[in-house]
Amino acid sequence: MEFEGKAHKFGDYINTDYIISGRYKFGITDPLELSKHIMEDIRPGFYDEIEQSDFIVAGRDFGCGSSREQAPLVIKTAGISAVIAKSFARIFYRNCINLGVFVIECNTDRIGQGDKLILDIDNNKLKNKTKDIEIPINFIPELVKKFLLVEGVIKYYKRNKGLRL
């Protein structure tokens, strides 16, 4: 499995309130409508900048704060193929693998805004095409990979007829 797209760079501690504000997530239940407000409070107009299969690239503790699953849901619906960050908050990380949103941990310092990236899941590789460098990524735990490769926990559960790890 391989994804190719450009990087949208964010800083440290991007919380789930920033990813999708509480003033939208309660009332709007259509994921497509909701995703138009992605990152609105910190980067207005972000939704229009996203092209299918692009990446969100960030610093430390991406997804901290609220447990709202609408956060990974709008990321997925907006067309983002993976979130690449130095580290992730726990609940957000679980929510991503449950929904089949790829979460990749690595040092993101050598990825700039708009850089073209290729993420090769099978071989655990991340290439920055713009800078022509390869960036080592943290090992994706086997259980996490199992969920992600079938697009999340619902399909995993159905295929395995239960919660077999």
Partner: peptide, 26 residues
């Protein structure tokens, strides 16, 4: 609980933790 502040219930000695909606549905 499908709310990050579920950890509140640790006050009386439970292991209480917040999760997302799909985890609760599971």
């Amino acid at each position: 609980g499908a709310d990050s502040h579920t950890c509140t219930l640790g006050a009386f000695g439970a292991f209480a933790t917040g999760m997302g909606s799909t985890d609760i549905a599971l």
